[in-house]
Design a protein around this nucleic acid. Structure first.
Lengths: 339, 339
DNA sequence: AAGTCGGTTGCAAACGTTCGCACCCTCACG
DNA sequence: CGTGAGGGTGCGAACGTTTGCAACCGACTT
């Protein structure tokens, strides 16, 4: 194994200078820096991360905790976060908690001490999670706690766009199929929908409660939606929409002819299924990237950042409506046999 | 921060004993062990990973390199690997190389020195990848190199089952839509298909070359499949099958009435699309778990393993056919209007 | 010409753990 | 009762890096 000592010998300097030349090049004379870097390259020197961490107290690695990697939503976020961490020369520990709050707390407890900070994506037990962190730097995605830095999507705006789209098509009674009770996103969406509908006196929202954020949740919700008399429905996420469509078809109902469906997230399944889903697009990869950036800014490290100070504003990502084939005017508005 | 010294003081022993009581409990007297463990728990002691790594030379963390986390195939493998690593009390660095061979080599180079070993899933440039490892422990998934430990799925058996299923339905001319040239899995599947078809003189295989392993690849392949005169088709993976179905429908052809389609992998999209895909099921999560187990067995560490010795046999996971709605008897065999 | 200042470098002390070695104590055996 | 064996424990030296401190040097100020 080649160490600083080897590089120092070859470059004809002390190990301190080697360390500085590689970590803080601006603090060393140009000629020396070049000599050291050349020697390091020649020898194939790779600093021992463990030693650096031990001495400096920061690891150059971050953690990302997600409920389920197999969910395309979180996969996309993880991909973005990972990408950004790599660009910054940092490592990223990704932990999948299998939607289990206990596992979540445990994972965070294990992760926190050996990373410089953690990104918590859609925590299932936020209070315990923050507790397990023991005050280490953290960034939340899709959650909101007093002074904790976060990154989020504009759920309210998205809901408004979805509602206006459906209203423009002629729908007046719109159902919402909600996700898990504990979900912050779900609460935001409900609130956004309520706000948006308040603007129009010809639109009524039927909010249906607490379904699992998977295909099964949509299947379970379908009959309630039909019974509600709504002509259009907005779902917690795309998977729920898929399940909903599946069950509707099994009952002989057509989408969008009998019922219009709007998904959420625009994960890639939305464009795969039949009919392709009208959905709310969020740049998930960017959400992940942004969270890492924010985390890095929070960490005291030797970065330019002031350190402890944390910008209190929360970046909010735009949510755009993507219109595909799952929405259409309600049957009543259409001449028989049209479209 | 609470260190071994604190625990030692509380337990009334030396730091060496603390270290041993926690890491190798069998080497310490029962009473002492209990006392130390109680003290550690009471103080909330968490060993400093970096220090342990630095001194002991092993990190208790592994790496996993995948081409694309957003691909449900790799997401499932990653999930399994992550799960198993957690169970073993180890960490797992997951790196997404974005299908880029350069990034792959770079990632491995960065990962290798700071982990105890790396799992390489479907490497895009295996030669360079193994080179970048610098001789560190490695396990391959979906690849095969002389003496390197690996874990794989029974692609040959899977292909045989798919072929027999189609033959039993009455298909005699079957197309195969292949994946990337560099893909080892693709080569295995072609070979398996050739072998299986050799058993029957009433089945002919039309192998079509090199398509991207995504939805676009399937769309690109569809017209070639139609032109080939095949009545059934097996695709490199489920996403390709989805793209294929999409394009066929755009041309006014029906699946399975005009063409039967068999996917590969049984990723969860297979059951979401219309029609649900007949596909080859592989327990991807288990594939990931197995790879980690194998890696751990390879690593010299202080585990019971003999160390350098590596069991040379390659675990092969069963591949099962899951029949859904995308396969049926060819049109010619059916009475007009029947199913 | 002496003093000062800023830029550059080296020395050496950590960081918290593991583990080889040596010691002690107890027990069994001769 | 003496000796040997062996389990249990403590001492202290690493592991490779970062970083505070001090020393040095040249240049500029007074």
């Amino acid at each position: 194994m080649v160490t600083v000592h080897d590089v120092a010998r070859v470059a004809g300097v002390s190990i301190s200078t080697v360390s500085r030349a590689l970590a803080t090049p601006e603090k060393v004379a140009d000629a020396t820096r070049d000599r050291v870097q050349a020697a390091a390259r020649e020898l194939g020197y790779r600093p021992n991360r463990a030693a650096a961490v031990l001495r400096a107290g920061r690891s150059g690695a971050y953690g990302l905790v997600v409920p389920d990697l197999a969910n395309p939503y979180f996969a996309a976020v993880a991909k973005g976060a990972q990408e950004r961490a790599r660009e910054r020369g940092a490592g990223l520990f990704i932990v999948d908690t299998d939607e289990d709050p206990d596992l979540e707390a445990e994972a965070i407890g294990a992760l926190a001490p050996q990373t410089d900070g953690v990104v918590l994506c859609s925590p299932r037990a936020p209070a315990r999670a923050l507790d397990a962190l023991g005050g280490r730097p953290v960034v939340l995605i899709n959650h909101d706690v007093d002074g904790v830095p976060a990154v989020e999507a504009d759920h309210r705006g998205g809901m408004r766009r979805a509602l206006e789209h459906l209203r423009a098509l002629g729908h007046h009674r719109i159902a919402y199929v909600g996700g898990p009770e504990a979900s912050w996103s779900d609460r935001r969406r409900r609130a956004g929908l309520a706000d948006a509908s308040a603007r129009y006196d010809d639109v009524e929202i039927v909010a249906l409660g607490a379904f699992r954020p998977q295909v099964e949740g949509g299947q379970a919700a379908a009959d309630l939606v039909v019974a509600s008399g709504a002509t259009a429905v907005i779902t917690f996420n795309d998977l729920v929409a898929v399940g909903l469509v599946d069950r509707l078809r099994a009952r002989g109902l057509d989408v969008p002819d009998d019922l219009s469906v709007v998904g959420c997230d625009d994960s890639y399944v939305a464009s795969l299924v039949t009919p392709p889903l009208t959905t709310l697009h969020v740049d998930l990869r960017r959400l992940g990237r942004l969270a890492v950036d924010r985390l890095v800014a929070t960490v005291p490290g030797r970065g330019a950042g002031t350190g402890a100070g944390v910008a209190p504003d929360v970046p909010v990502l735009d949510v755009e409506l993507v219109v595909r084939a799952s929405t259409a005017p309600p049957a009543a508005d259409r001449p028989e046999g049209a479209l």
